[in-house]
Design a binder for these strands. Structure first.
Lengths: 205, 205
DNA sequence: AGGTAACCACACCGGTCGGTATACTCGCAG
DNA sequence: CTGCGAGTATACCGACCGGTGTGGTTACCT
């Protein structure tokens, strides 16, 4: 049985320790605000979206936004936290209904990525956010780092080998970048084939 | 002899056709402006830097900025164009003074990347810019696409095989992302080792 | 001498930024 | 009945956004 952590620990992200980073209790307007912010942040970028637009899109007011979340920075952090949780749940569910052997599991990650992205060209929400925030003390940065560390841990666990896991994680991140910024529609098939080749080479050296 | 294009063709980026995209003739204040904009854009992101700050940092005025470049968007495009040119020249110079065999050339790319980045955590200027601009009609987007296509062509030429070239390009982009957004200081050594493994597997299948 | 390109200093424009304040309505629990 | 949390509406704040206009000073070219 594979043991994959389902929570996102911001302080020791690579560990398996099940630390909770719970979402705050959401009111109705709060949920609408976070959903609207999520769509807008992802589509246009964090800095490009103002709090006025978020409140208007959610059908509420800036007052309510600041009553619920306190600041735009906190809302950005929650946006990434929610997105990380949804991706993890989605991916783990698909992996459970895939063949249990290591190679199938890894290739399934690429398949799930392709279906998740669809025809869209906005790339990885975490890489995009990091591009805007940089290596600062913004409260969202630990969430970004934790998401990358979680994917690395996933590949390590799926393969049982940190060297192969690292190789596959590099291929996964490269695929995501070249699919979007690179505008290469063949990125996912190429990434999948490269992953297959890397696993074959590792098992028959 | 390796034949690597040194120019950045925005319209047919993958071709070897030597189309020029020359920098405009620069005055003294124009050069200072573009240099200041380059540093600020890369360090803080394109949207986070205003034209007032650029002009002040360059020791000139907004008036001069708009007289030279016409718009902030044009300045952003020129920033990426200049950066792409510098990276290409730097990388090709290092490749010329490296062993000429295919494997050494590829591994040298990772070494040059590590030295180019240094201890810094701002990542790929082109990926960062795409994160802010997205798949829009911004004049800088073709420059981003062309840079990614140029790196892919480089790996194709260095290896003489588009399948292996694609694999290595994925590893290269993944390395860059995980070094910065992922905050993994082992990203370059891991990427280098993965590249070596991919090339070995390709030659002894 | 006249023209012109480059540059600087500075004021100005409408719009938007993140964030706050005031005042009001509604539903609900004590 | 009262208090309170949630929400709405709207006005406001100083700061900054990209971009423009005016006027004046050099230096060089014809």
């Amino acid at each position: 049985m594979l043991q994959i952590p389902t929570t996102l620990d911001e302080t020791t992200p690579a560990s398996l320790r099940p630390v909770l980073t719970p979402m705050p209790v959401m009111t109705q307007a709060g949920t609408r605000l976070l959903d609207a912010a999520g769509d807008l942040f992802y589509d246009r970028g964090v800095r490009a979206v103002g709090v006025d637009l978020i409140a208007e899109t959610a059908g509420t007011t800036k007052k309510t936004l600041y009553d619920r979340f306190g600041s735009k920075d906190a809302l950005v952090r929650l946006y990434l936290l929610q997105r990380a949780g949804r991706w993890r749940e989605h991916l783990l569910a698909r992996l459970e209904s895939a063949p249990a052997d290591s190679e199938s599991q890894v290739l399934t990650v690429f398949d799930v990525l392709e279906a998740w992205m669809g025809p869209q060209r906005r790339g990885c929400a975490f890489v995009n956010a990091y591009a805007e925030l940089g290596d600062t003390d913004h409260p969202a940065v630990p969430v970004i780092r934790a998401e990358k560390a979680w994917m690395r841990t996933l590949f390590d666990i799926l393969t049982g080998d940190p060297v192969l896991g690292g190789h596959l994680h590099l291929l996964y991140e490269g695929t995501l970048v070249l699919l979007t910024a690179g505008a290469n529609p063949q990125a996912v098939p190429e990434g999948r084939a490269a992953a297959r080749s890397a696993m074959a080479a590792h098992h028959h050296p």
